[in-house]
Design a binder for these strands. Structure first.
Length: 868
RNA sequence: GCGAGGGUGGCGGAACUGGCAGACGCGCCAGACUUAGGAUCUGGUGCCGUAAAAGGCAUGGGGGUUCAAAUCCCCCCCUUCGCACCA
């Protein structure tokens, strides 16, 4: 037994042992209850893992280790989200082939995760860019295709000029590409979509059954954006044409004084009168040139032009002008709105600017009055003919029914959610398994011919033309139609990375299956995922897509559950104190640059930058900011167990943490103190301590045992509640008590009063340490002759009788203020507690001569005496 | 603008269904042991007040409910995140 705590020799030793023994291998079946814990699989970047990444991996690892000790059969896998643009871009930047690069980077990640002591079953490692994996990604595409959920359309899409590819709506943030921050353009291109909108309602409803954070669910709800209302047709005056509008306020129909169409609305050219054509065309041209960003700026004033046409308001037969304006979006509803300036702020602004009539049709009082601004609230109908006086909700139902009877409208539900754009005009992705045949049209690649292999090429740069680089490879493109055998062309778009991550959690249940995406029984055993952890940045995209595919699988009869992730946890980020500077006036002024008030100073720029102008901020660790701390350097200084303890102890799992090396010393000190105490107790350890424990215990012995069992209870509870910080705090408290009880320092060491107690503490402490500091725990477990690995040892059991306090500190309040405390036996009757409190000399002093109004006793805690 | 979190010592953070605010750690102060210590051990550490007590004040601000409020209710301020002309 080494005298001193030496993580640098202990840690590699046990990591090697775990690997050799396949300690963390998840069985294919077991009598034990299963537990499937999963972290979002990472894209292995060239920068490697830093301590910030471990903020997620380490607590989840502790959780899995705990579950294993609690008797669960644990599945804790890891794999690589290797396809997609991050990998491709990095490969391009470094002039390397992603095929060679990705495995290297993955190996580097794996090395660091092992260094951190993470308990993955590496036998289940997957790589989404390998044909054996993406064969099944393609299979999923075909499944969706067969179900009518994959289609090709030339609708205008979000085009990122920098990435040279289309982006799904979820990948556009504030009008910019989420990866490169370029302004996104609208571009019409034939593209593949998945019909996620068919599932909008179910994706929304089933959120209720999930144990996810309120914020997370809310973000999904917002993104799906369900709104209920009615559609109504407006006849164009002197024409057979009709315009369909969508409104959530059909009750305000009488107040609709004009119609606005989106500039892209297909009917614009049909209704515009000859004298307005040039003006309208000019406006459309201008609107087209505008970026998403411009259009989204709500601050700017409204613009629009009159088309010269009038529509007839069906409820009162009044003719209302039809305008076009860019504040109406083609992508939402019908791309046309009826405008009720009295009760919609945007319409109000527009009407004011262009002098259009404003009519009040809803009133708080039932009387009409001058409107100073739009009043969007509910109330009573006014100026609405025979409906006057009706309440908003009733009026909505009544008028919707009327529209239906007249066959000019109906009740409608609208979603903000759009279909999922899956096409990428890029090389590094799973090819879409479709063949275009001049005779047969679109033909899916027969399942037996999967995978459609991604060809090995020299040049995989995005083409300038907007086409995928695959289009330039005749051997790939030219093929035979599976239907008629004639010459045909392969689809050259690849699937975006989110396709791979929409089903990988199934694959982990059966990662090497070459006949199915995963075996049904294995899925039935392991799925759904019990605990899923990852960054909040995937709140919409990934989690929505994964839920969608799961529902498709359910509908197709492959699985028996509808939601993949029962519990979801989002870890906070690790922030590093990062030097930066204010932007120069030349920077940020340009509209195409993201406006920033702080720019990171690279380490190389730091040297000759004036000290007093450096602005320090807390920023997320990333290699590009030059503020990363690697697990390697910390492991070298303190050992990885200290790093693990620090990451879990410093703050709750969901919170952001400011990295500082000072506080890691506290974790190191804790482990050192623990080691010292346990090491000193070792000579007294006996396996049969249970029999040797005296029946009755008093004084210090009873006290320290009480603390031990209270700690066992707390630590387990805190881990279950995902409160790793307080779990570790409880262990620290126990350790403080242990030092109080018995000093491990040789000079001061006394012969322990009871050796069996030392043994009990030692054994239980080792077990409780195991999830957090697994290397130290294994070492000590071995020292006390524990069987096998501590990973599979049984979690300590809590004895409520031992933990029970036999005395309590009674807090005595007078008029709600603490005046005295006294130690009394627990379990006394209320009357006796009262009597004891009144008897206390200090209390007696205070209440002397006062009238006692009330005495409240909270058993086991406190007494409050109310006096006058 | 809308929606969801959050505001507690010098710092990170504790506090079960309302019941001792500040667990645990960092930092700081003092002592012990030491050639030394940025090691280790022991004690102290919210603020005001005092020689020490007593006592008073404290959970962003203001009001309220209650014997009792960080916790529940109302108003306001700040902050983080998400969405943003969604009809």
């Amino acid at each position: 037994m080494p005298k001193f705590y030496d993580p640098r020799s202990i840690e590699p030793k046990w990591q090697k042992k775990w690997e050799e023994d396949k300690t963390f291998k998840a069985p294919d079946s077991s009598d034990k209850p299963k537990y499937y814990a999963l972290e979002m699989f990472p894209y292995p970047s060239g920068s490697g893992l830093h301590v910030g990444h471990l903020k997620n991996y380490v607590p989840l690892d502790a959780f899995c280790r705990y579950k294993s000790m609690k008797g669960f059969s644990v599945l804790h896998p890891m794999g690589w989200d290797a396809f997609g643009q991050p990998a491709e871009n990095e490969a391009l930047k470094r002039g390397r082939n992603p095929r060679e690069m990705v495995p290297e980077y993955a190996a580097n990640y794996k090395r660091t995760l092992k260094l951190a002591g993470c308990s993955y079953d590496w036998g289940r490692e997957i790589d989404s860019s390998q044909p054996e994996y993406y064969k099944w990604t393609q299979w999923f595409f075909l499944l969706l295709y067969k179900k009518g959920l994959a289609y090709r359309s030339t609708a205008p899409i979000n085009w990122c000029p920098q990435c040279k590819t289309g982006l799904a709506n979820e990948e556009v943030k504030e009008g910019r590409c989420w990866r490169c921050d370029s302004l996104v353009e609208k571009r019409p291109m034939p593209q593949w979509f998945f019909k996620i909108t068919d599932y909008a309602d179910r994706l929304l409803k089933d959120l209720d059954s999930l144990d996810w954070s309120a914020g997370m669910k809310e973000m999904q709800r917002d993104w799906i954006g369900r709104s209920e209302g009615a559609s109504a047709n407006f006849q164009i005056a002197n024409s057979k044409l009709q315009i369909e509008v969508f409104t959530t306020r059909p009750d305000t129909l009488f107040g609709a004084t004009f119609i606005v169409l989106a500039p892209e609305h297909p009917m614009v050219k049909d209704i515009t009168t000859p004298e307005k054509i040039s003006e309208v065309e000019a406006y459309i041209k201008k609107a087209k040139a505008e970026t998403e960003m411009d259009r989204m700026n709500a601050e700017r004033t409204k613009t629009g032009v009159f088309t010269g046409a009038y529509a007839v308001n069906p409820v009162n037969n009044k003719e209302v002008p039809v305008w076009i304006a860019d504040y109406v979006m083609m992508g939402y509803g019908t791309g046309a709105i009826m405008c009720v300036p009295g009760h919609d702020a945007r319409d109000f602004e527009f009407a004011r600017k262009f002098n259009l009539p404003i009519v009040q049709v809803v009133s708080k009082t039932g009387q009409s009055y001058e409107l100073a601004q739009a009043e969007p609230d509910e109330g009573l109908a006014v100026n609405s003919g025979k409906y006057d006086g009706m309440k908003t909700a009733d009026f909505k139902a009544t008028i919707t029914k009327w529209l239906e009877e007249q066959k000019i409208g109906h009740h409608t539900v609208n979603y903000r959610l759009r279909d999922w754009l899956i096409s990428r005009q890029r090389y590094w992705g799973a090819p879409i398994p479709i063949i275009h045949c001049p005779k047969c049209g679109e033909v899916p690649v027969p399942e037996g011919q999967l995978p459609v292999l991604l060809p090995e090429v020299e040049n995989y740069k995005p083409s300038g033309t907007g086409e995928s680089p695959l289009a330039g490879i005749p051997e790939f493109v030219n093929t035979k139609c599976p239907n008629c055998g004639g010459a045909a062309r392969r689809e050259t778009d690849t699937m975006g990375g989110y396709a791979c991550s929409s089903w990988y959690f199934f694959r982990f249940a059966d990662p090497h299956n070459d006949r199915e995406f995963a075996n049904k029984e294995k899925i039935a055993y392991w799925m759904p995922v019990d605990l899923y952890a990852g960054g909040i940045e995937h709140a919409r995209s990934h989690l929505l897509y994964a839920r969608f595919w799961t529902k498709v699988l359910y509908d197709a009869g492959y699985i028996s559950f509808q939601e993949p992730f029962k519990i979801l946890k989002n870890q906070g980020s690790l922030l590093a104190h990062t030097p930066g500077r204010k932007p120069k006036s030349s920077e940020g002024a340009d509209d195409s640059e993201k406006i920033l008030d702080w720019i990171v100073l690279k380490p190389e720029e730091m040297e000759d930058f004036p000290r007093d102008q450096i602005v320090w901020r807390w920023a997320r660790m990333s290699k590009s900011k030059g503020n990363v701390v690697t697990p390697e350097e910390i492991a070298h200084k303190y050992g990885v167990d200290s790093l693990r303890i620090f990451e879990m102890f410093v703050a709750p799992f969901e919170d952001d943490v400011q990295w500082s090396e000072e506080s890691i010393n506290g974790s190191y000190r804790f482990l050192n103190r623990t080691w010292k105490w346990l090491d000193a107790a070792l000579p007294y350890y006996k396996k049969d301590w249970r029999e040797a424990l005296p029946r009755e215990m008093t004084g210090r012995e009873a006290q320290v045992r009480r603390k031990l069992h209270q700690t066992i209870n707390k630590v387990g509870g805190h881990i279950e509640g995902f409160q790793f910080n307080t779990a570790i705090a409880a262990l620290m408290e126990l350790l403080n008590e242990l030092y109080d009880y018995w000093q491990p320092v040789e000079q001061e060491r006394k012969v322990p009063a009871n050796e069996a107690i030392l043994a009990e503490i030692l054994e239980n402490m080792v077990l409780m340490l195991a999830p957090f500091a697994p290397h130290m725990a294994e070492e000590l477990w071995q020292e006390i002759g524990g069987k096998g690995t501590v990973y599979k040892a049984k979690w300590p059991s809590f004895d409520a009788n031992v933990a029970r306090e036999n005395e309590i500190t009674l807090v005595i309040q007078v008029n709600g203020k603490v005046r005295e405390k006294m130690v009394i036996p627990s379990g006394l009757s209320e009357d006796i507690v009262k009597a004891k409190a009144m008897d206390n000399s200090k209390v007696a002093e205070i209440i002397k001569g006062k009238e006692i109004l009330k005495v409240l006793v909270i058993q086991g805690k406190l007494i409050n005496i109310v006096i006058k």
